[in-house]
Nucleic acid binder design. Structure first.
Lengths: 218, 218
DNA sequence: GTCTATATCTCGATAGAC
DNA sequence: GTCTATCGAGATATAGAC
C-alpha cells in the first residue's frame, strides 16, 4: 500500500537547529559544514537560508541558545526535587562521567568548544555563549541560595562548579578517561557541603548514594 | 647603500610552528588556514609541506607539542624558586588574569580550543594534546610533592588546579571578565594551602602578596 | 515554504622552476 | 630550500523552478 509522505513531527527549522547543536557539540563551529547539517537534519539546503537569512553565523548563534536552554532544563532535572543540593551536585558529576563513557567521550559540554573558537572572532556567537553560561550559573546560584547559602557565596559556588565541570570535560575528552570528572565531582561536592552544612562538626565521608531514576542524557 | 637580504634569526620551520601555535591558540585548528600561517610566519608556502610532509594535521600536532613545552617552561618559572607552592599557585592565577586583560582575552590556554575540536576527529592531535596536559600535570604534581604532599593527593591537587584554570579560561574569554579566574585562584590556593599546611589551626585569610618580578607572558 | 542546481570563494595540497 | 602557479574538493551562499 503506497504511503503518502507525511508531515514530519518536528518542524524543519527545529530539525536544523537540533542537528547544528549536535554537530557543534562534537566538532565545533568551523568544522561543522552546512552540507553536513542538512544531511543530518534531513532538510533541504535552501531551508537553511530561508530560516536563517544571515547564514551560518546566525544559525550558530541560535543553535547555541537552543543548546543552552536544553542544558538549563537538564540542570533543573537534577536539582528539582533532589533530597538536597549536595546530592544533586554529586549526581550531576556522576552522570556527566557516565555520559562521557557511553558516548565514547563525544558528548560533553554542548557549547564550550564553540565558545572558545568564537570568543575572539564572532561577537554575535560569543554573546550567545556568554548568556547561556550566565543562565546556567544563575540557575545554579538560586538552587544554592534555596539551601541557605548567602547570595555572594552561592554564586561563587555556582561559578566554581561550572569551572570544575568544564575543566573536567576538557581533560576527560582529551585523555579519554573519566578520572578527572570524578576528582572534579569530589571537590564540587565538598565545596557545596562546606557551604550548605557549615555547622557539621565531623565531616564524615559520605558513602556513595544510590542515584535517582534515570533521566535524559546529558 | 644596498643591503643584502639577511638570514632570519629564527629558522623557517620554527617560525611556521610559532605562527601556527599562536593562531590555533586564538581561533582553533580548523579556522586557522595554511595561507594565514605562511603570511604570519613570513614563510614560503612550499616550506610548509617541505617541513611537514603529512600536511596540516602533522603541523597541528607539532604545534601542540611546541606550545605544550612552552607552557611547561612557564609553569616552571612560577614554581622554581618560589617561597612556597601556595604562593606559586596564587601568582600563577593572578598572572593568568592579567594576561587575559592585557590581550583582550585572546591569550588563554594555547591548547584547549584545539583539544576540544579534535578530541573526536583526530587521534594524532588528540594524543599530542593529551601528552601536553599530562606533562603539565606531572610537573605540577612534583612541585606539590616537594612540599610534602603525598603522591596521590599531590596529583589530585594538580588535576584540580588544571581544571580550575581551564574552566576559568573558558568563562573569562566568553564573558570578557577576569572574575572567574579570581574565584578559581582563590579555591586553588585554598586547596593547596589545606594540603601543604594541614597542621595550621586557624586558617587566617592571607593578605595578598606582592608578586615577584615580571616574567614571560603566558 | 520546499527543493535543486549552481555560482563563487577559499581550502588543503601539489608540481615544478629556480 | 625557496617560491609561484594552480589543481580539485569543499566550503558558504544564491537563484529560481515548483
Amino acid at each position: 500500500m503506497p504511503r503518502r509522505k507525511t508531515t514530519p513531527a518536528v518542524p524543519t527549522r527545529d530539525r536544523i537547529l537540533e542537528a547544528t547543536a549536535q554537530l557543534m557539540r562534537r566538532k565545533g563551529y568551523t568544522a561543522t559544514g552546512l552540507k553536513e547539517i542538512v544531511n543530518v537534519s534531513q532538510a533541504p539546503f535552501g531551508s537553511v537560508y530561508h530560516f536563517f537569512p544571515e547564514g551560518k553565523e546566525q544559525l550558530g548563534a541560535e543553535a547555541i541558545r537552543v543548546a543552552g536552554r536544553q542544558y538549563n532544563a537538564l540542570v533543573a532535572g537534577f536539582f528539582d526535587g533532589a533530597p538536597d543540593v549536595v546530592d544533586a551536585v554529586r549526581d550531576f558529576f556522576d552522570t556527566a562521567a557516565e555520559v562521557l563513557r557511553q558516548t565514547d567521550y563525544e558528548d560533553a559540554c554542548p557549547i564550550a568548544t564553540v565558545a572558545l573558537e568564537v570568543a575572539s572572532t564572532s561577537e554575535t556567537m560569543r554573546e550567545a555563549a556568554a548568556e547561556a553560561f550566565e543562565s546556567w550559573i544563575t540557575d545554579a546560584t538560586r538552587y544554592f541560595e534555596a539551601s541557605g547559602v548567602g547570595s555572594d557565596r552561592a554564586r561563587e559556588l555556582a561559578v566554581l562548579a561550572f569551572m570544575l565541570l568544564e575543566g573536567a570535560f576538557l581533560l576527560c575528552r582529551t585523555w579519554k578517561s573519566t578520572e578527572p570528572m570524578e576528582i572534579a565531582g569530589r571537590f564540587a561536592v565538598r565545596a557545596a557541603h562546606d557551604l550548605t552544612q557549615p555547622e557539621a562538626s565531623s565531616p564524615v565521608p559520605q558513602p556513595p548514594r544510590r542515584r535517582r531514576a534515570a533521566r535524559a542524557a546529558q
